[in-house]
Amino acid sequence: MVTFDEEGFVKIVDRIKDIIENGGKWISSVDLENNLMAQEAMVIAVPHLEWRERSIACAVIEEGKTVAKRELYDFL
């Protein structure tokens, strides 16, 4: 859930649910976020035709730095 201010900025204030259903498995977005908290991060669900939903992690990294997907997988 988000709010928009008068200048058009978006602020994430909460989520509608904390559980993501992924192909019959239930994933806690809170647990994923807790594992990512070495980074400024959040986890959201996006629709998926085969699995119903998939989890997407959004993380803030230092300006000018990059992180490979494999590095995040290894970290988790």
Rank of each mutant, 00 (worst) to 15 (best):
M1A: 09
V2Y: 14
T3E: 13
T3H: 09
F4P: 01
F4M: 13
D5W: 07
D5A: 05
E6A: 14
E7C: 05
E7K: 14
E7W: 09
F9Y: 15
V10Y: 08
K11P: 01
K11F: 13
I12G: 05
I12N: 09
V13R: 10
V13A: 05
V13H: 06
V13D: 08
D14F: 07
R15A: 04
R15C: 05
I16P: 03
I16F: 14
I16C: 06
K17S: 12
K17L: 04
D18V: 06
D18P: 12
I19Y: 06
I20K: 00
E21T: 10
G23N: 08
G24D: 08
K25I: 13
W26D: 07
W26I: 06
W26H: 11
W26T: 06
W26R: 09
I27D: 00
I27E: 01
I27R: 00
S28N: 09
S29I: 06
S29K: 15
S29T: 09
S29E: 08
V30F: 11
V30C: 06
D31K: 13
L32N: 02
L32E: 03
L32G: 04
E33D: 09
N34R: 13
N35D: 06
N35H: 09
L36Y: 09
M37G: 07
A38F: 11
Q39S: 06
Q39P: 01
E40F: 11
E40A: 05
A41H: 02
M42N: 04
V43F: 00
I44L: 13
I44G: 02
A45G: 14
A45V: 01
V46G: 04
V46E: 15
P47C: 04
P47H: 07
H48I: 03
H48L: 03
H48T: 03
L49D: 13
E50H: 09
W51I: 04
W51R: 07
R52D: 11
R52S: 11
R52W: 06
E53K: 02
R54V: 12
R54L: 14
S55D: 07
S55F: 12
S55V: 10
S55R: 01
I56S: 03
I56T: 08
A57G: 12
A57H: 02
A57E: 01
C58W: 10
C58T: 10
A59K: 03
A59I: 15
A59F: 15
V60T: 15
V60G: 04
V60L: 14
I61E: 00
I61Q: 00
E63D: 12
E63F: 02
G64I: 00
K65L: 02
K65T: 04
K65H: 13
T66Y: 02
T66K: 07
V67K: 05
V67W: 02
V67Q: 03
K69G: 04
R70M: 08
E71H: 08
E71Q: 15
E71M: 08
L72P: 00
L72W: 08
L72E: 01
L72H: 01
Y73G: 03
Y73T: 11
D74L: 11
L76M: 14
L76A: 05
L76D: 05
